[in-house]
């Protein structure tokens, strides 16, 4: 055997096959193989309260939504102005109602499955092994991110927002303080009404303008969701600074960047509002979670 392996090229052939095989396994494990960890029970407590839809708005006794479309620096930007009677109507949902890795559905499919009125993609928690995940008051992942920028967005039961450093707190502590939703992506765009990103800031290693998804708060129960197009001839995309400037102009106190790029999708009343694209093909990307307004 030793003599066999010492003879070129058998060692090289066998080792190459083993190395390539393990690399393929790692890629499949990371990107393809679904790993369901926990199924979520449907938390819907009431049906839609007979609201009135127009092409760009929704109104009922508990929820008011207006969607505006603006052109900002050669980019189409979709702004949803949301006012609620209770934070209970600001919800999140997992793809296939299942918490896990590589469990994916399009934003529109998840939104339709939950009878959402308005939905945007979330933080794509299922693409990473760390980062706090608290959704609809349930803690799913308490592992903090091991990156320099580990800002998480916390939505509390009184409807307020707070940006926290994951390494400076714990998911259990946030839950005890009344967190109902925690997103782990970032960075924060606004804190105390001031822009917290520089003109050169980007998500990890990204350097260019991109499609974006973000959420902000003007005051408790008055929220702004923004999705911008990008990577197309019609829309260049926004930098984080440009995105933050829009939130500031709208009067937000806190704003937080969610998963963008090909994931960026806004869905309203059964229709996709923006133009989702991964840069090569148009269409929705499957994601692991959404943020939505509904009952």
């Amino acid at each position: 055997m030793r003599r066999f392996l010492n003879k070129s090229p058998w060692w090289a052939i066998i080792y190459t096959v083993l190395l390539a095989g393990f690399a393929v396994f790692v890629l499949l494990d990371t990107f393809v193989i679904p790993k369901a960890i926990q199924t979520v029970r449907d938390s819907a407590t009431e049906t839609t309260a007979g609201g009135v839809y127009t092409s760009n708005s929704y109104e009922d006794e508990n929820i008011s939504i207006t969607i505006m479309t603006e052109r900002v620096d050669e980019t189409q930007v979709y702004i949803a102005d949301i006012q609620l009677q209770s934070v209970d109507y600001l919800k999140t949902a997992f793809a296939q109602n299942t918490y896990g890795r590589n469990i994916k559905q399009t934003t529109s499919a998840i939104a339709e499955a939950h009878d959402a009125i308005l939905g945007i993609n979330g933080d794509y928690y299922g693409f990473r092994n760390d980062g706090f995940v608290i959704r609809n008051g349930i803690l799913y992942r308490s592992t903090s991110r091991s990156v320099d920028d580990d800002e998480a967005l916390v939505i509390y039961e009184n409807g307020s927002f707070e940006v926290v450093s994951e390494s400076a707190t714990s998911a259990d502590a946030l839950l005890e303080q009344g967190a109902v939703q925690v997103f782990s992506f970032g960075p924060s765009l606004l804190r105390n009404g001031e822009i917290t990103v520089s003109k050169n800031s980007e998500v990890e290693m990204a350097k260019t303008s991109n499609p974006r998804t973000a959420i902000g708060i003007i005051s408790p129960l008055h929220y702004i969701m923004i999705v911008s197009d990008g990577r197309t001839d019609a829309s260049a995309g926004l930098t984080l600074y440009q995105l933050a400037a829009i939130f500031k102009e709208l009067g937000c106190e806190t704003a937080y960047n969610l998963d963008g790029g090909g994931s960026s999708t806004m869905w309203f009343n059964g229709e996709i509002v923006n133009v989702p694209t991964d840069g090569s093909t148009l269409g929705e990307r499957k994601v692991s979670d959404i943020v939505y307004i509904g009952y």
């Binding site: 396994f25 790692v26 494990d29 990371t30 693409f127 990473r128 760390d130 290693m205």
Partner: peptide, 8 residues
């Protein structure tokens, strides 16, 4: 580049 990681 994909924004993820693997335990392996």
């Amino acid at each position: 580049i994909a924004g993820t990681s693997s335990r392996y």
